[in-house]
Design a protein around this nucleic acid. Structure first.
Ligand SMILES: [Zn+2]
Ligand SMILES: [Zn+2]
Ligand SMILES: [Zn+2]
Ligand SMILES: [Zn+2]
Lengths: 168, 168
DNA sequence: TCGATGATTGTTATAATATAACGCATCGAG
DNA sequence: CTCGATGCGTTATATTATAACAATCATCGA
């Protein structure tokens, strides 16, 4: 049996996770990517991206809006939705359909399909890029003559940490 | 290699599909299932189920409401949502998260996980019950110590029939 | 049969999520 | 500079879903 490489650890964050650094890294990568593509990561979009990256839990558009108003008093729903649209188009965040919420993308360098594990207890969402799942899905679709354009794969349940602690 | 049985044809409907019969069968099965479980498939719930089964395209709650009003003038949003909740609880319909819409379940006899192929052109949704996909998903989750409670797997794209016709 | 009980439905209001439409500002190419 | 495209402000509205409480109905034991 082939062993996973060291990088294939849990995609859920551990207690020692340095999230401030995590967010700064994500913002820097976003700036680089947008520059490379000629896309404008304006200050507004950057702030929305930072707010979506506030944690590893998906966050709703109106929650982003409330936070954004602190630094940007005139913000209204279109302000946020337009920024979210931009960030999604450029693969910097993903939309979680089953929650009507948004979460930062962990590998924005290139477009990809991903799968999400979403903990119902702590709210954390882990992004997977599992070739076996993608392969199984595409294989079956191909057998049926269906051309897949977009995949929404969201698994809700209990993450390892919440499973370990019986309650909270 | 193991060959699929004859029943494993495309889950998309063909031109010869007798949908009136399809709906009646679904309603009869629903009645039987509810009777066996001691659940009450009231006339209201039965009508909502019939409306959701109006086609093999997922249908929104407010579209159901508009249709329902013809036979049930006093209907309001809670009327529909409560019926939809009942039907989902008993596995008679599924909710499509990526569309905020509802579609009849093709195999309501027992609870199951399913995957949906949704055509962006004609709107049809086909329900799969592919063990390979389910296995790949559960396997990866288990490796990560994640307990899966619910699966949302929705693939949008182009169905075989729409792919065949270049345009419409 | 009667009435207690829980399930179902009626009704009104409101919450939560998302988009339409239009105008102004800004930026960069030519 | 001027034009055209993009970004953003602003107001209003669309779409999806739920809260809360009253009225009615079904069922079943006393
Ligand atoms: Zn982090
Ligand atoms: Zn049919
Ligand atoms: Zn089903
Ligand atoms: Zn189609």
């Amino acid at each position: 049996m082939v062993r996973s490489r060291a990088s294939a650890v849990t995609p859920f964050q551990t207690a020692s996770h340095d999230h401030d650094n995590c967010v700064e890294t994500a913002l820097d990568r976003a700036a680089q990517l947008c520059a490379a593509r000629g896309a404008r990561l304006t200050e507004l979009r950057r702030q929305v991206l930072r707010l979506v990256w506030g944690g590893h839990e998906p966050v709703g558009a109106y929650a982003v809006l409330e936070s954004l108003k602190r630094s940007h008093p005139g913000a209204a729903p279109p302000t946020v939705y337009r920024a979210l649209d931009f960030l999604i188009e450029h693969g910097l965040i993903h939309r979680i359909e089953s929650l009507n919420a948004y979460v930062g993308c962990s590998r924005p360098e290139r477009p990809h399909v991903s799968q999400f594990l979403i903990c119902g207890k702590c709210g954390a969402a882990a992004e997977l890029d599992d070739p076996a799942i993608a392969r199984a899905v595409l294989r079956r679709a191909a057998e049926l003559g269906f051309v897949v354009e977009q995949q929404t794969i969201e698994l809700s349940g209990l993450c390892p940490r919440c499973r370990a602690r019986p309650d909270a």
